[in-house]
């Protein structure tokens, strides 16, 4: 992935740009792949849907579930925790 792959249409402010930049930098550095990150986003969304009591039918699809920027930072933490690169956050 390069920064050229990032869709500027989804950026509406500084934190959105920053988290996109962080993820892109880590992917460029080989810390994980775009597919890894996408999977982490999907898992997070699916978990939240279950926690909220929502129907599993409402779980994100592979095409859309990873695209919510608000999930990117927690999904990134989750991915790095799973790889023991970050300690588990305090509950």
């Amino acid at each position: 992935m390069t920064y050229a792959d990032i869709d500027p249409e989804r950026l509406t402010g500084e934190w959105q740009a920053r988290i996109l930049g962080i993820v892109a930098t880590l992917i460029d550095a080989g810390t994980f792949t775009w597919a890894d990150f996408r999977t982490a986003c999907l898992e997070l969304r699916a978990e939240r849907a279950t926690d909220d009591g929502a129907s599993t039918a409402a779980a994100p699809t592979a095409d859309t579930g990873w695209a919510d920027l608000e999930d990117w930072a927690p999904a990134l933490r989750r991915l790095l925790e799973a790889r023991s690169l970050l300690p588990a956050a305090a509950p």
Binding site: R18, I19, I22, L26, A73, L80, L86
Partner: peptide, 20 residues
């Protein structure tokens, strides 16, 4: 806020040497 979350996460990644 998500802005604060991103700030904290970035700081932690830098502190741990994960983010250049």
């Amino acid at each position: 806020s998500p802005a604060a979350y991103v700030e904290r996460l970035e700081a932690e990644l830098v502190e741990r040497g994960l983010l250049d």
